[in-house]
């Protein structure tokens, strides 16, 4: 094959992906940045350049800082809890036992369901008046908290639903990591009479860590976009549960402020990129640490 032909084939094979990337990722991103410097609205003709006014608004807006704080708390708590519970669940599932396949299948059901549908179902379950949970608590003679209306509870209620949905994902990834550890390492540790804690700390955890880190990164970026559950349970404009995504929805689709919404989105993007960079560097470090010397 001539060099020219080979080059053509390479280009031909890469072109569709490149085209899709440009059309669906690069162009919207660039356009979003352009919009963030204008006063563009969802409806109405024309928009004009407003310089950095939208960004000034973003950084001075208490709604934005509140939503950012809430989202960060959500990412931290959801990611942490899901990671801890998922890993614990995976350790329990690592051993062979009767009915393991069934347990695993049932455990995976929540993450296979649509978050929007689950949000609606949980809205019914947690309803303070006729929700199933409070009916059961009432029958048991226990207090019936207002899961989705009590200001001190609603954020945590949504967080728990998210944990319920995504812990199986963490468990699945952890299980894959645990299964990939060669049994010989454990056998060697057994010969050396290493304690269970030492085995966990020195073998299991370091070898699974890169995969856990990756899973945590995926969950963190996903939790950063938290939208469906909040929309379905408390709506986009609740002071106690508004996340960055629901704030964006409120600004762009309800208020129609596309320019301002684009500025919000750009700042979120920078946060996501920063977070992703930290995680990938961490993963690289872990990988580097595992290279045999």
């Amino acid at each position: 094959m001539s060099e020219r032909g080979s080059r053509g084939l390479k280009l031909g094979l890469v072109a569709p992906a490149l085209l899709l990337l440009v059309v669906f990722n690069v162009f919207p991103l660039v356009y979003n940045v352009v919009l963030s410097f204008t006063n563009a609205e969802l409806v109405g003709d024309g928009s004009r350049f407003v310089g950095t006014a939208n960004y000034a608004r973003v950084f001075s807006d208490p709604l934005y800082s509140g939503a950012l704080r809430r989202t960060a708390l959500f990412v931290f708590c959801a990611g942490g809890l899901e990671l801890a519970l998922g890993f614990a669940f995976a350790l329990a599932l690592k051993r062979e036992f009767r009915g393991k396949a069934l347990v695993l299948t049932l455990a995976l059901v929540p993450m296979m369901l649509s978050p929007a549908v689950m949000g609606l179902y949980w809205g019914l379950i947690l309803n303070g008046n006729y929700g199933v949970l409070n009916q059961v608590l009432g029958e048991l003679g226990l207090a019936q908290p207002q899961w989705l209306t009590d200001r001190s509870l609603k954020f945590w209620s949504i967080l728990l639903v998210d944990v319920w949905m995504w812990t199986p994902f963490m468990a699945l990834v952890s299980l894959a990591g645990l299964s990939s550890i060669p049994p010989q390492i454990y056998e060697a540790a057994e010969i050396d009479r290493a304690s269970a804690w030492t085995v966990f700390r020195r073998i299991t955890l370091p070898l699974v860590a890169p995969l856990l880190g990756l899973a945590a990164l995926l969950r963190a970026t996903d939790a950063l976009k938290q939208f469906d559950l909040v929309m379905a349970t408390t709506g986009p404009n609740d002071a106690a549960t508004q996340t960055l995504s629901t704030l964006l929805y409120q600004v762009v689709f309800r208020d129609g402020k596309v320019g301002l919404g684009s500025a919000y989105a750009c700042v979120v993007l920078v946060v996501v990129i920063a977070l992703a960079t930290v995680f990938t560097r961490y993963l690289d470090r872990l990988k580097g640490a595992q290279v045999p010397r």
């Binding site: 209306t149 200001r151 404009n237 609740d238 002071a239 409120q250 309800r254 208020d255 129609g256 402020k257």
Partner: peptide, 17 residues
């Protein structure tokens, strides 16, 4: 809509204590 959103928010905070 913006006026409505802030009304819902602040009155909501008042009602919720």
């Amino acid at each position: 809509n913006e006026l409505l959103a802030v009304t819902q928010r602040y009155v909501g905070m008042a009602v919720d204590g």
